[in-house]
């Protein structure tokens, strides 16, 4: 049964990669998360399953769908050269798999060990309590980073004063008439650079 769930998971992962519509890809990814949660339940890991279902299939999907609806870009451009990279990726993963099987030949299990909610809670709050505080800091740092990324620019204040009879409201600051008082000439149009010399 677990092999059937994992096969379905791989099919949805393939769909998530190859579908052209971004929204359908994200929904396929949500299906992958839900199937992974089922696999965790089948492996007697219910806490990880619930967390994967709520965070992976819930929160991340909502965030991604919201972003796609904001940016309104549903399709991606056509790609080229995928076959070469597919072969490179396949070779890399095959080498990794071979090395893993070589160095850990007993990586299969005849039985599944059971664990309840209390066991995981005890481990989290006793043995791994120190990990939780850096995790909270990471979440806070991420929130600050998102706020910094999404902040809007301050609007430029409109100048309403007038210089030498010229209304500056609709004139850029570089086109202000500058009077040359030394020579007593008529004011001419030039660059008003603070501290700079006239051309």
């Amino acid at each position: 049964m677990i092999y059937f769930t994992l096969s379905l998971l791989l099919i949805f992962a393939l769909l998530a990669i190859f579908l052209k519509d971004n929204l359908l890809s994200i929904l396929s990814l949500a299906a992958v998360s839900a199937l992974l949660a089922i696999v965790f339940f089948q492996l007697q890991a219910p806490v990880a399953g619930v967390f994967e279902l709520s965070v992976g299939a819930g929160l991340i999907t909502v965030l991604a769908v919201l972003t796609i609806s904001f940016i309104q870009t549903k399709h991606e451009k056509a790609q080229s050269g995928a076959l070469l990279w597919a072969l490179v990726g396949l070779a890399a993963v095959s080498i990794l798999f071979f090395l893993f099987q070589l160095f850990s030949p007993g990586a299969f299990s005849p039985t599944l060990a059971e664990s309840g909610w209390n066991d995981v809670g005890l481990v989290l709050w006793n043995a791994r309590a120190f990990d939780l505080f850096p995790q909270v800091l990471i979440v806070l740092a991420a929130i600050l980073g998102i706020l910094a990324l999404l902040r809007k620019k301050e609007p430029v204040p409109v100048v309403t004063a007038s210089v030498m009879g010229t209304d500056l409201k609709s004139v850029p600051i570089t086109d202000v008439p500058i009077a040359d008082e030394k020579d007593g000439e008529e004011p001419h149009w030039g660059a008003a650079v603070p501290g700079g010399e006239e051309p």
Partner: peptide, 13 residues
Amino acid sequence: PATTQSIALLVIS
């Protein structure tokens, strides 16, 4: 399973 589940929770978050 309990230890690895706690690590998995950290990874997922």
